[in-house]
Every structure is written in C-alpha cells, then in structure tokens.
Design a binder for these strands. Structure first.
Length: 316
DNA sequence: ATCCAGGTCCCAG
DNA sequence: CTGGGACATGGA
C-alpha cells in the first residue's frame, strides 16, 4: 500500500505516510484534463471535477489532503481512482532496471496512472487527436458546461462531464461551435453509437433483438472494457475518431489495461532517442514498447511521456 | 507567415 | 495491409 493511515477531517481526508503520489506529476502528466493548479499562498494545490464532485488535492511532506471527500467515498471510489491499490515501489523497481527508464522514473517519481471513467476518457482522447493539451482541456470544459450536470461548490459553479444520454442531445454544429474543429463529427458519431447500444441494452429486457441489433450491442463501453487486450483495442477502433493511439489511451486510463502502450509524438521521440527504435512506423514502435515493458507498458509509457514532454526532448 | 499539437480518415497502389 | 495528404483551430 502506498499510504499508511487515513484520517477523516471536517472537509476531507488526510492520507499519511504517502509514497509515490505527487499531485503535480499525477495531474500534469497528460492523462487527465479536468484538474487545474489553484495554488494558495504558495502551497501547491490542484482542483478537479471527478465522478460528479469537485475535489482539491495538496501535498505537504508525506501527507496528502483530499478536500471534499469523505472516508466512505474514498473507500468506495477515489482509492481506486487514484490507483492506490497498486504498489508503485514494486513497479518502479522493475522499470528502473532499464537504465534509460531510470531517468524518466526519477523525473516523474510521483506519477500514478488514474482509473478514470471510460466515456469521459473516450471523448477526451478523441478530442486530443492532433491537438494541444490546453485546447483539449478547454474543449472538455465547454462540453461539460453545455451538457453536464451543474455542481455548486465553495461558492462557485462547476459542471460534471455529461453522460452519454446528456451528450447525445448535442448536434455536430453545436459541438463545432465549442471550438473542437473537425473532431465535432467524431464525437457526435461516437456518442450516437454508444447511445444506440445503451438503448438496445434496455430494450433487450423486454423484447427479442434482431441479429443486426445484437451486433450494435457490442458498441457498449462496459462490454468492450471486459474484452481481452487485443479484442478491446480493435473494438474501440470501431468508434469514429478512434485509432490505435486513442484506443490505447482509453484502455490504459479507464479500463485498467496497463499493457497498452499509446504512441504519440513524444513517446515516439523518446523511443527513437533512447532505444534507437526505427522512426516513423508507429505500430512498430508500439509493439517494440510492449516487447520491452510487457504488462507494465502503459505505466512505463507514462513516465516516458511526462519526461519527454516536460524536457522537450528533441531528435535531430 | 509557416509550423505544430497525446492522430484519424480516406484513398491509391 | 501500408504509405501519404487533408483536416479545424489557434498559439508560437
């Protein structure tokens, strides 16, 4: 376990004896888009919207304070969200045997790979394609403001990421007006596909489905999450706007499939730079990474990505 | 102004 | 199946 004790306070919980947990690393390593830095009197603090709640997180020495979380909510949901059931010392010991990953782990020592919600993660990473992180965050924020449920906290209004039903009310034109560019169509089609599967799942209980309808059931995210790695990777790519990279991100960040190895421009640079992997061919770099890191591929990838991007690693 | 960003789609060979 | 160009958008 990466924390020793938990204490319930009036407005949150205090985790003591915490290891391998640094908010800055966790929230700025590119895996999530709804956490922002809101420092208070030069104390490093982050605020995020997760699971229909506004949370704040701060670290002081080895104590992590999570504001607006009860002990019960922590045990039921946020413990798993923060991946606190995983032993990162053990993972890092293995990864550090690789001399080049040793540097990346030393740099992002407080990274934990969050277990996020599949629908939000899917839409977020569809939005991420050929895009910049600040713009991805802005697009997700606007989608939430326009279609998500209102959350009032500490005198401010925030918005949860919409459910498939809520987002299914958006038209392509409306989405495009939020500044997401050509990805509006991808988001629209993916949401409609998911809604169709959800609706059929409900009607399945009252009537017999046709063969065609049964096929559409396979577009349900819960069913896809239950598939083994390769089938899951392929199934996700049936959604419009989802290729190998986005599918890997969804698997890694929301379906607990840590053997996924998303290859973006930065990981590609890191792999070419560190391992002399042959450039250009993304799918070769992907299998090269999985060969190298096995079931820890996704976590290794996250240390590499954070290190490469923060240090703006260049090749040639 | 041109280039680029946590890529994917679509088409030709 | 594989390789190349188009694609919205806005900041550097």
């Amino acid at each position: 376990m990466d924390y020793r004790t938990i204490e319930e306070k009036e407005n949150g919980i205090l985790l003591k004896g915490v290891k391998n947990f640094h908010p800055k690393h966790i929230f700025e390593c590119g895996q999530c888009f709804r956490w922002n830095r809101i420092d208070k009197e030069d104390e490093e603090r982050f605020q995020g919207v997760v699971h229909g709640k506004v949370l704040r997180a701060a670290i002081n020495d080895q104590e992590v304070f999570l504001e607006n979380v009860t002990r019960e909510e922590f045990e039921d949901f946020f413990k798993e969200y923060f991946d606190l059931n995983r032993d990162y010392d053990k993972i890092k010991r293995v990864l550090r045997k690789d001399p080049l990953l040793k540097e990346a782990v030393a740099f992002g020592y407080g990274i934990r790979v969050l277990n996020q919600e599949p629908f939000e993660t899917l839409i977020s990473f569809i939005l991420s394609s050929n895009n910049l992180i600040p713009k991805i965050k802005e697009g997700i924020r606007k989608i939430s403001v326009n279609y998500g449920r209102e959350i009032n906290y500490d005198g401010e209004t925030h918005y949860a990421f919409p459910t498939p039903l809520e987002l299914s009310r958006a038209t392509i034109e409306e989405l495009r007006a939020l500044g997401v560019g050509y990805r509006a169509k991808y988001i629209y089609e993916t949401v409609q596909t998911i809604r169709r599967a959800e609706l059929l799942k409900e009607s399945e209980e009252v009537r017999e489905l046709t063969d065609e309808e049964k096929l559409f059931l396979e577009d349900d995210l819960l069913s896809i999450a239950a598939l083994p790695h390769d089938l899951c990777h392929k199934a996700l790519q049936r959604y419009t706007g989802v290729g190998a990279k986005v599918a890997d991100c969804v698997m890694l960040f929301s379906m607990k499939k840590k053997e996924a190895f998303p290859v973006d421009v930065w990981v590609k640079k890191a792999m070419v730079h560190f391992y002399g992997a042959e450039g250009n061919n993304l799918s070769k770099i992907r299998s090269f990474g999985q060969m190298q890191f096995g079931e820890l591929s996704g976590i290794a990838q996250q240390y590499l990505f954070y290190h490469a991007r923060e240090n703006k690693i260049r090749i040639e």
